[in-house]
C-alpha cells in the first residue's frame, strides 16, 4: 500500500490502480501516510511543514482578530520597523494559508482523493497517448469531416511517432 501511495504521488498509477488506491485513501491510516509522504516531500524541497496544529491555532487566532477599518496611513509616515512587522505578518499569513491547505487534506478525505485524481489525470494526459486504439482511430477518421477538408492529414494521429505506440 505504501508503495502504491508513493507511486500515486509520482503519478505512476493507471486508472484501475488509481480507483483502488483512491478507495484505500478513505482509511485514516492510509491518509496519514499520504499526508506524511507529502510532509517528507515538502521538507526535502525545503518547504517547512510547520509544527503540529499550527494551522488550526493560526486560523483560530486570525479569526479572533478584529477587522480594522481605519484609513490607510500615508506612505512613508510609518516607521521602518512597522513595515517589517507588516511584511512579517504577511509572510506568516501566507505560510498559514499553505499550512492550512495542507492540513485540511487530513480533515477531508474527499479532497485528498480529488487532488490525487487530479494529479493522476494530468499524468495520464501525458502518458496515455501510448495506448490510443489505432484501429478505432483509423475507422473514425474516414467519417470525420476533418478528413473531407484535409484529406489524409488527420491520419497523422494514427501514425504519429511521438504520440502513439503501435499495438499489434
Amino acid at each position: 500500500m505504501n508503495e502504491d501511495l508513493s507511486r500515486l504521488m509520482d503519478g505512476d498509477l493507471n486508472e484501475t490502480e488509481l480507483d483502488r488506491v483512491a478507495g484505500e485513501l478513505r482509511r485514516p491510516q492510509a491518509l496519514a501516510t499520504w499526508a506524511c509522504y507529502h510532509a517528507i516531500g515538502d521538507s526535502l524541497r525545503g518547504c517547512p511543514y510547520g509544527s503540529p496544529g499550527f494551522a488550526n491555532r493560526f486560523s483560530a487566532a486570525l479569526a479572533a482578530e478584529p477587522t480594522v477599518l481605519a484609513p490607510r496611513p500615508k506612505l512613508g509616515t510609518e516607521r521602518p520597523a512597522a513595515r517589517w512587522a507588516v511584511a512579517a505578518a504577511a509572510t506568516v499569513a501566507a505560510v498559514g494559508v499553505v499550512g492550512w491547505t495542507a492540513f485540511s487534506l487530513s480533515d477531508a478525505p474527499g479532497t485528498a482523493v480529488a487532488k490525487a485524481r487530479e494529479a493522476a489525470a494530468v499524468t495520464s494526459a501525458q502518458v496515455r497517448p501510448q495506448m490510443l486504439p489505432q484501429d478505432y482511430v483509423l475507422v473514425h477518421q474516414e467519417y470525420s469531416p476533418a478528413t473531407a477538408l484535409q484529406g489524409v492529414q488527420p491520419y497523422l494521429r494514427a501514425v504519429s511517432v511521438q504520440g502513439s505506440d503501435v499495438r499489434p
Binding site: 486508472e15 495520464s124 495506448m131 486504439p133 475507422v139 473514425h140 504520440g163
Partner: peptide, 23 residues
C-alpha cells in the same frame, strides 16, 4: 467534427486501458 462510439465484447480487448486518452 465527428464522434465515434465503439462497443465490443470485453474478450476482444484484454488489457485495454480504461479512462481518458488524448492525442
Amino acid at each position: 467534427v465527428a464522434v465515434s462510439v465503439f462497443v465490443e465484447s470485453i474478450t476482444g480487448v484484454p488489457g485495454q486501458a480504461l479512462g481518458t486518452m488524448r492525442q
